[in-house]
């Protein structure tokens, strides 16, 4: 339900993976003597000098430092975006005409009210709600933890009809999109059961 950096992760993995794969294959090609056919200077029994000579050039330490800083910044930024984000909507502006006054409402407040409404539903043990979008085009993300013996279809219908209806009525606009994720609440009474996924 929370937003993750899925696209960035896959792009990063593909780029780093490709670079590492090509580097590794290049080293193996030279090491096993396959590269000598194309570049005679890269014999398998030759020393690493042609490659390491780059490190002996003037200013190579400064260049290495700059590369290290760039790599560190990229790695730290990549690590920082791994924390899943709720990304609530910005406060909704509810007024029809700003000249007569402003009415703003925090999305978290509405989400909390919707969660309370959900938890009052039979069969729902716990609920988390995220509200995104705008006041005129809101998107509701709902995760409910249902009782393991609850009627799931009836529960979904109740959420879509009554709870989402109440939210739509409170916001004064139809909900552009609603996503419902149905989890099952863990029960403590049945100790002999274990579940793996």
């Amino acid at each position: 339900m929370r937003r993750t950096a899925a696209a960035a992760n896959r792009t990063g993995l593909i780029i780093v993976g490709l670079i590492a794969l090509l580097l590794g294959l290049a080293v193996l090609a030279i090491g096993f003597g396959f590269a000598a056919a194309f570049l005679p200077s890269l014999q398998a029994d030759a020393s690493l000098d042609p490659a390491t000579a780059v490190l002996a050039l003037p200013y190579s330490a400064v260049i290495a430092l700059v590369v290290a800083v760039v790599l560190a910044v990229i790695a730290l930024r990549w690590l920082a975006v791994q924390v899943p984000r709720k990304d609530f909507a910005k406060p909704f502006r509810m007024q029809a005409d700003a000249r007569t006054g402003l009415t703003t409402m925090n999305a978290e407040v509405i989400a909390e009210a919707v969660a309370d409404d959900l938890e009052s539903t039979d069969g729902v043990v716990d609920a988390q709600v995220i509200l995104r979008g705008t006041a005129r085009s809101p998107e509701l993300l709902v995760h409910i933890d249902a009782d393991e013996r609850a009627d799931i279809d009836a529960l979904i219908a109740e959420v879509a009809d009554r709870v989402a209806g109440n939210a739509s009525l409170a916001l004064g606009a139809p909900l552009r999109a609603v996503a419902v994720e149905v989890g099952i609440a863990r029960t403590r009474s049945r100790r002999q059961r274990t579940v793996s996924v």
């Binding site: 989402a164 999109a177 419902v180």
Partner: peptide, 14 residues
């Protein structure tokens, strides 16, 4: 799940 009138797009998953 049936999509009521007040919802544009309903997505449900387990």
């Amino acid at each position: 799940a049936n999509t009521p009138d007040h919802i544009g797009d309903l997505e449900v998953a387990v």
